[in-house]
Amino acid sequence: MTISAIDAAPSDALIQTDHAPAISASNVSKRYGPVSALEGLTLDIHAGEVFGLLGPNGSGKTTFMRLLAGYLLPSAGRLMVAGHDVVGDSLAVRRHIGYVPEAAPLYRQMRVGEFLAFMARLRGVPERNVKGAVERIVDRLALSAVVDKPTRALSRGYRQRTALAQALVHDPDILILDEPTNGLDPRQIIEMRQLIRSLAGRHTVLISSHILSEVEKTCDRVAVLLNGRLLGVRAMADTPDLEAWFLSLT
């Protein structure tokens, strides 16, 4: 079973550097008491690109994503998503994003179709469009075999795909995926990678990973984080040897 590629287009043409960034972080910090999870991060992510956050566990990737998704609030700095401030206009930000947390959480008591309909309604899809939106996303992510199954009975691959479906069901501008290939088998990883690539252009996609090859094969640009600090940003086209660059930074 394969995931259908949607609106696939050559990625090189999709980095719209002449437009306002989809995501703009200016000197953003996040502290938990005395512990600093993110320190003075400044970064622009362009509309339509697939952007990778690379770094070891605890480097601040998840914290940054949670800040973008509105789950956490920054301790300092300014963070703009789709032209809205995550602090001052959090609800507007959340209308523009789809977010898949690292654990890919699902409501265990719901069936897949029921869960997607619930998330569609919650994310503001008008009632008359909910059924169509769910059918489209089920078809798009090849979930029809499990649509009537309880989410607690899903395999890891289907769990991840259902989590991605809930993030896409309202057709958001920006997609934030925290470790989207975590726990998937090699075939599922390839399918997920193809899917993410197919989203470029129509959606801005931000993914995090600690696997170099994943970022290399999926992203247009990549940022390296370590201990909450941004060490560098590069376009993949300008980085023939990601491993060497990564090692030189860390």
Binding site: A69, R94, Y99, P105, M119
Partner: peptide
């Protein structure tokens, strides 16, 4: 995390 990152 799903609830708090939805526009709710």
């Amino acid at each position: 995390e799903l609830l708090l990152t939805a526009p709710v």
